[in-house]
Nucleic acid binder design. Structure first.
Lengths: 194, 194, 194, 194
DNA sequence: AATGAATGAGATTTCATTCAT
DNA sequence: GATGAATGAAATCTCATTCAT
């Protein structure tokens, strides 16, 4: 099925270009060029630009799922959470230039009336839910949701500040603090157990 | 000077409309209509759309300065910081629908090559610097910057999660937690003093 | 009559700016700025842009008349003709950058259907007629017109080539040749007399 | 390649319309209409109006090359030069109405800061160089360049005067004189040989 | 007379979408 | 399925001209 491969190429190109330029500034001609697919042909795979954007959101959601799934190979929930907290290190330069790809999508699409907003709202639900699950496994009970929110908020907050202030040092310090917060939490939680 | 008043009307309308729709989706016709100014006349006040966007950024920067200045009427730095932490409460519904106006601008404009990015990078510098100053007044010394970053990151993070997850409860809980964090910090800092 | 002075300022500014930019590329705002007259006020002096252009043509025609008149202070028609032939020397750099102001007007306006073309056609009639008159005074009889055309054609031709090829050396050589042509003509004409 | 044919149609229409109206007065809508191409589609072939103007210049340059090349089928350089001198006869009415197309472009575009001026400066270099080459073949040595400049200057000068004075008789007389000049030059040059 | 501001028609340009083959 | 080309609506921008005071 050679058509499926082209479809993937389109989604990948769109994901990348729209991340760097934003969905609105990105034209289908941009995507066509970046993917090497002729412009006219794009419409065979995606009825409208919105359909392509939706596919991009889906791809981002899958990317999140894959990332979270990969983290689950780690044996210990604490390790998983720390890995999540520090995941931005690998993308520091991208984050600094273009911001968090999920936040970008969210802020751009939640403003729309289109059903695209629907899909985009899952971007963070997935992550918060996953983190909450980890905290629950660690017996944080009702506190788990709050902690998950704390974690994700700190991550997203520092990504935004990185993009705005362009200070890698500040970014690294914050990630370190975030990891330490998890460590301390682990220690005090351990101590609280009978 | 009736022209100046119209200029202000234009900036205010643009600020509002661009916040709700994003700068790119917003046409000058939108702004013209929202402000009751004929389209052709907009160009008498702003040579290009970018010039108008820049005026919007400037207005947002001034808004931030005004807000921070207003907080300084509070006698105690701890009160000021808590007021900042909780400031989102007054804008909850807007934040939920359209996100943080500063983050919106930042994420949209930092992707551009235009000098607009320049101006937009100040949006958070102002706030972090201000918070740092408060912490310094409270004798946190070198820790002040980190704490300022923590505060702003948490604020921005929860604003984003509010927009994405649309949970006012989660939002309120997080703000409360943030305020409690400040209270705890104050208490332990107090205790540490001789 | 302070209004008359402003009117003159406008014409002078328009003459200059339109020479450098062409009449079409020049906006009334350009002229207003160059002359220091407020835009709205321009219309008090000139009902339309075309009226201003016509005033510019009139000014150019007067400039030509003045120049030719000044040449008539020279006692000898041969001197006058040589002075005309070499007049471009004083304007070399302008000619190189913007071409001959009269040719510019002529080529731009003769394309129009407006009555402006009418006025502009005089720009060269004046000069050819004047040169013809000189040759007639030198007893060239029926040949006078042809010689006048030869002189003007060579002048205009080299002005154009100067603008296109940007070679001051070529320009100077041609002017020198043109003057020599007049000298030779004078010599042979002299010899032919009884 | 049907697209290439349309591209040519656009260039031809633009060349014609811009010659008659000038490049600035000519809108892309004019060109679209003259060529029977929908306005929006023009931009598929030319990214900007300037790009179209540049194509027009290129076409004019090619036209010049073709014309000069055609003259080279004549066996004798003197014949070639005379043919060049008289070439305006075939275009008399156009020259009278709209001036020389090359001079038009040159005078309009050399005023610009755009790189269009670059291309337009070749319009006359080609012709002067060609004429110089002919004179060199006739063993005029260092005089060849001057003679070439004389020829082109006279041609361009009379074209301008034709447009301004609208006298076909004057035009014809001048062309005849120009040809006679070449004949005389040939005769005296011949006589000067051993 | 003077002037800043207003107006609207029109020009350039963009681009999602569709067409024809 | 594939593709270059076509289309038209809409956006940005310009500017001669007019208005209100």
């Amino acid at each position: 099925m050679p058509g499926e491969e082209k479809r993937q190429r389109l989604i990948e190109a769109a994901t990348q270009v729209m991340y760097q330029q934003g969905t609105h500034r990105t034209t289908l001609a941009d995507v066509a060029q970046a993917s090497g697919v002729p412009l006219g042909n794009v419409y065979y795979y995606f009825k409208t630009k919105d359909a392509l954007v939706e596919a991009v959101i889906k791809a981002r959601l899958q990317e999140i799922r894959d990332n979270l799934h990969a983290l689950e190979t780690l044996p210990d929930p604490w390790q998983r959470l720390k890995a999540l907290a520090g995941i931005g290190r690998s993308f520091r330069d991208q984050l600094m230039s273009y911001g968090c790809p999920y936040a970008t999508l969210c802020l751009e699409l939640e403003k729309e009336e289109t059903p695209l907003a629907q899909s985009s709202s899952e971007l963070f639900a997935l992550q918060v839910d996953w983190a909450e699950k980890q905290f629950r496994q660690l017996d944080f009970g009702d506190e788990a949701r709050d902690l998950a929110v704390d974690l994700l908020a700190n991550m997203q907050g520092i990504y935004l500040l990185l993009q705005s202030l362009r200070s890698p040092e500040m970014f690294e310090r914050k990630l370190t603090r975030l990891e330490k917060w998890l460590d301390d939490l682990a220690a005090s939680h351990q101590a609280a157990l009978p």
